[in-house]
Design a protein around this nucleic acid. Sequence first.
DNA 1: CGGCAATGCGCC
DNA 2: AAACGGCGCATTGCCG
Length: 668
Amino acid sequence: MGRAVGKQLYCFDFETESDCDLKACGSVVYSHHYSTEVICLCWNRVGEPDVGEWVPGALESTLTQLVEHQDTVFMAHNVGFEKAIWRNIMMPRYGYPDIPDDRWHDTMAVCAEKGLPLGLDEACRALRLPEQKDKAGSKFTIGLSKHTFDKTGMSKVNRPEDWRDIVIAYCHQDVAAEIALHKRIGWMEPKEREVWLLDQTINARGVAVDLAFVTAAQTIVRDAIAPLASQFMDATGLKFTQTAKLLAWFKARGLHIPNMQKGTLDSILGSDEHGHDDDIDWELFVPDMPEDLRRLLKIRQLIGSASIKKLDKMLECTWHGIAYNLLQYHGAGTGRWAGRLLQPQNFPRGVGRDMDHVVSAIMTGDHRYVDAVIGPPVEVVVGALRHALVSRPGKVFVVGDFAGIEARVVLACAGQHDKTALMAAGENPYIDMANQIFNRTDITKTDDIFEYTIGKNTVLGCGFGMGKDKFHLRYCPLQSLSFAERVIQTYRKEWAPEVPKLWYGLEAAVVKTVHDRTAHEAYGVEFWMERDGWLTARLPSGRKLWYYDPKPCTVHVPWDIAILKNAYTYGAQKTGHWQRVSGYGGLITENVVQALARDLMVHAMFICERENMPIVLTVHDEIVCEVDECGHDWAKMLQQIMEDRPQWAIDMQVPVTAECWQGDRYRK
DNA sequence: CGGCAATGCGCC
DNA sequence: AAACGGCGCATTGCCG
């Protein structure tokens, strides 16, 4: 079941034209758009000369036979697109039967699993395949869409006469490239195929968006920003989004600002809205700033949030109140999902205001009212963005969050069992850490906020080799550097001395594997050079992490120019493009730990599905299910599910706890 | 002018 | 005895 191997495999590729912007709206909205039309569907049976094509109105039965043959599996690169076209155009308009999820195979999912770029063209290039995607053809086809007319100058009247033939030829070339890619990368691991099928189910369910809430929020933002933006323009001649130019403008008036980030502005203005004086860097505070400049910075701070763009995005990518395909399977190299379209994984957290109060105020659409009863309207809306996601009528969200999961996994992985036992016993590890750092025994969460926060940040942040400089900059810029150094040393030497051994142990194993091309194991992770140019790390969970094109190298150690040590690099996607990355202990540890935390998620996700708690969203260490509204204590049930550990996690002694709640609106 | 890279900013 | 990593989207700015 679910296996696509051994069946008749057909590569399947649609070319379409539309006024709808596919990238912005997603494949579901695109496929439903009135203007979207199929130009052609081309296919080729993998390993056979069996090539075919379909165009609207074609009278032939080959396609019907293919689809009705239950042993036919259809392969595409990003099948979300092909599925949407099939189900929302081919079925309703042309009467074809459905192709169920388990008869699709996605080469993009395999690329994701094996650490390759997700784009077809980028993947083929990274693998140096002779068969490549036809870039000119792609540009031509995209140019057929009306929303690009102004850019390409092509329109229905001046298209070349043979434009359909050009597109069909391009489509066949894409099919050839996809087949070459498939032959090189093969199938998914069977267990990951099951995860991917679940991913497809979740993406097809979608999440409901409260459209009335979104439009009310848009009204508030628009009305609140307008007067402030024009004041700002009058004073500076600049739009408040032109960050670099603004910094120069302020500099010319004697005010040197490192950046326009929220925290920086809080510090410079010497006040933040919520009285967290801890967060303020008083060295940046400018007490004698001219009032006009202060006023401008204040405006920038109030309306400069880019997050409000999400409101537009929510409407754009929603079809009849549901946003589909918000998650990318294995979007991160470690197997975590990535967010797409309205990006549900980076909603601002807000500041813990009363949700019902905030939502009802926003629903009025009146920015003055929001200002009067809650606070600065734009800031209120930004903090409430996640509340736009709601459960469908008659349903309720049940949401669970793994507590400090990566810190727990790294300690368990390292064999730091005194600390995992402490967590398993329900004690607070952050207090334990803080007591050790400050040489005390009586620190509490409420009475020693600074000490507690340092303890927490140390436990959560230091498991992957962070150094004193980074810790200082990030968590305690007002303290001395030697304080940060002491914190780091306390973690590494006293609190969790097994953890640095984990970094160096994993590094030694992976470096040996890349250099001598034999298997090496450390801490339950087995490194191995696969055929065809991959390094893999088999995790205690049984899953493999894949690193493409690993190469041995040597580097100078930082403390002695004369000493060389073995190291390695590999190809990976970084800041949006394919480049070589240097591996090191902290990094490989981070990858392994993040991957294991993901596998704990997946374990819980399968149980949720089995127990009739359909998942609609995941956010790294958080599961969102949508269940029938009834008297049932769903939160309790989800907690039991998430705290059920797979055997490998029991063996590793990972202490797992989950915090769960239920409600009809998404919140933190 | 479009394409691409870098940057800023949100999250875990 | 060094190194925190993983994302996506919007915007800006540079280059051809």
